[in-house]
């Protein structure tokens, strides 16, 4: 990499000023198109109490190594881009403050159970396609309006029944934490299952039977063994494990 000079020698960039607190950021580097094995690059990073892991990674990318591959966008835990393994656990980089990790070394690696594109970036094609498979939309004949149509009525209590599961930002952390996905890449996964429940629990929807049929197969819902890791890592409180167990109530005939 070419040497990087500051814009002018008098103006040192503020962000590179050493602060009292600093940690070592270890970033997994691996480009399957070029490299044979992953390596870790280490950078000292200073931080404030509000500095997130994403801030730290971008600091390194902007001022030390431009080649770090990382996916990010909204930096407020809404877009779901920056899921990665931080000190061994799947987390959103923008939603993890360095100060709350209580560690002098912060290691970031790409999420497990997804194909690697480069460094911290993984491919989501399969997760997006399983999401599509469970028919994630309102299934009913009059779902297109004509002029003069008003809303389907829904009480605040009706909304409470599914709103928790509508919080999914498709960051993939649940699939990365899931012990079944650790060995079974054909498992439909907690993300899609939670979404199946989100639509079934919506009183406007009439697609329950179709969706239950789709998930009731060999690598479908029964691949879940309620280890709860998905719910533990979900950054939005979606609780996929709960959604999955509630879905099973329908399949086992406890619930209509």
């Amino acid at each position: 990499m070419a040497a990087i000079f500051p814009v002018s020698s008098q103006e040192k960039h503020e962000k590179t000023k050493p602060s009292a607190k600093s940690i070592t950021l270890r970033i997994s580097k691996f480009n399957p198109g070029k490299d044979h094995a992953p390596t870790f690059l280490e950078f000292p990073v200073s931080y404030e109490k509000w500095t997130t892991v994403l801030d730290a990674i971008l600091e390194v990318k902007n001022y030390h190594d431009h080649s770090i591959g990382v996916r990010y966008s909204c930096r407020q835990a809404m877009c779901g881009s920056c899921g990665m393994i931080i000190n061994g656990k799947p987390k959103l980089a923008c939603f993890t403050k360095i100060s709350e990790l209580n560690s002098n070394v912060v290691t970031v690696e790409p999420m497990n159970n997804f194909p690697l594109i480069r460094d911290l970036v993984v491919g989501f094609e399969r997760m997006f396609s399983t999401h599509k498979r469970i028919k994630p939309y309102i299934v009913r004949e009059d779902s297109e309006i004509s002029s003069g149509t008003k809303e389907f009525l829904q009480s605040p209590e009706d909304v409470e029944k599914y709103i928790q599961f509508a919080g999914c930002i498709k960051c993939g952390l649940c699939n990365s934490a899931c012990p079944t996905m650790a060995t079974d890449s054909t498992f439909i996964g907690p993300q899609a299952l939670a979404q199946a429940y989100r639509y079934i629990a919506d009183n406007r929807d009439q697609g329950k039977d179709k969706r239950l049929r789709i998930i009731d197969e060999r690598h479908g819902i029964w691949g879940c063994h309620f280890a709860g890791s998905c719910s533990q890592v979900c950054p939005k409180g979606v609780d996929p494990a709960m959604g999955i167990q509630l879905l099973r109530g329908y399949l086992l005939g406890y619930k209509k």
Binding site: D216, E217, R218, G220, I221, W222, L251, L252
Partner: peptide, 16 residues
């Protein structure tokens, strides 16, 4: 087997 039985039927047997 799962072509003959739905997975939920197998699981009911498993539980029972």
């Amino acid at each position: 087997m799962s072509s003959i039985m739905r997975e939920s039927h197998i699981m009911k047997i498993h539980y029972l």
